[in-house]
Simulated assay, not measured.
Amino acid sequence: MNVPYDLSSYVRVLKLASTPSWEEFSQVAKIAGAGIVLVGILGFLIFVVMNFVPGGVP
C-alpha cells in the first residue's frame, strides 16, 4: 500500500467534490424519504398479512 499515492488520490477526489444545490439536495431527500416510506409500508403489510395467516407471528 503506497500511502502518499493514496492520500494524493483522496485529496484529488475531495477537490473535485462540490456541495449540491438546494434543488438537487431536496430532490435526493424526497426520493430517499419515499423509499424509506415504501419499505415501511411493505413491512407493515407483511406483518398484517402474517397476523391473519394461521401459525403466523404469535
Rank of each mutant, 00 (worst) to 15 (best):
K30R: 14
E23Q: 10
L45K: 08
E23V: 11
P20D: 12
I41W: 04
A32W: 03
E23I: 12
V39G: 06
L14R: 14
R12P: 01
F52E: 02
P58W: 03
A29E: 13
V11W: 07
I31E: 13
L38V: 00
F47K: 00
N2R: 08
L38P: 02
E24H: 01
L7Y: 09
Y5G: 11
V28A: 15
G55V: 10
L42H: 00
V48R: 02
V37Y: 06
M50W: 05
V37F: 12
V3P: 14
S18I: 00
G40R: 00
K15L: 14
I41N: 06
W22M: 05
I36V: 15
F52A: 07
L42Q: 00
A34F: 03
F25W: 05
V3A: 15
R12C: 03
K15A: 12
I41S: 07
K15W: 06
S26I: 02
G35P: 02
V13M: 08
W22E: 04
V49K: 06
V11R: 09
G55F: 11
S26A: 02
V37M: 14
E23T: 15
L42I: 12
N2I: 01
V37L: 15
I36F: 05
F25I: 01
V13C: 09
M1A: 14
W22F: 01
S8V: 03
V11N: 13
L16A: 07
G56F: 06
F52W: 09
G56N: 03
S9E: 15
Y5R: 12
V53L: 07
F47Y: 10
V28M: 11
V39S: 07
V3F: 15
F25N: 04
V48P: 00
V11Y: 14
S21C: 04
G35N: 12
V28S: 10
I31V: 08
G33P: 02
P20W: 14
S21N: 12
G55D: 03
S21W: 03
Y5E: 09
W22C: 04
V53Q: 03
G56R: 03
A17R: 08
V3D: 09
K30H: 13
P58S: 12
V49Y: 11
L42E: 04
S21F: 10
M1T: 15
G33N: 08
P54G: 13
A32S: 11
F47Q: 01
L45W: 13
I31T: 15
T19S: 14
P54D: 15
E24T: 04
V13N: 06
V53E: 01
P20H: 07
V39D: 03
V37D: 11
E24R: 10
T19K: 10
F44S: 04
L38F: 07
Y5F: 05
T19G: 06
P58D: 02
K15Q: 12
L38Y: 00
L7W: 10
S26R: 02
F44V: 13
I36L: 12
Q27H: 01
S21L: 11
I31W: 09
E23A: 15
L38K: 00
V39L: 12
V28T: 03
L42C: 08
L7F: 06
W22A: 11
G33K: 09
T19M: 10
S9F: 07
K30I: 08
A32C: 05
M50G: 05
G35K: 10
S26Q: 04
N51W: 08
Y5L: 09
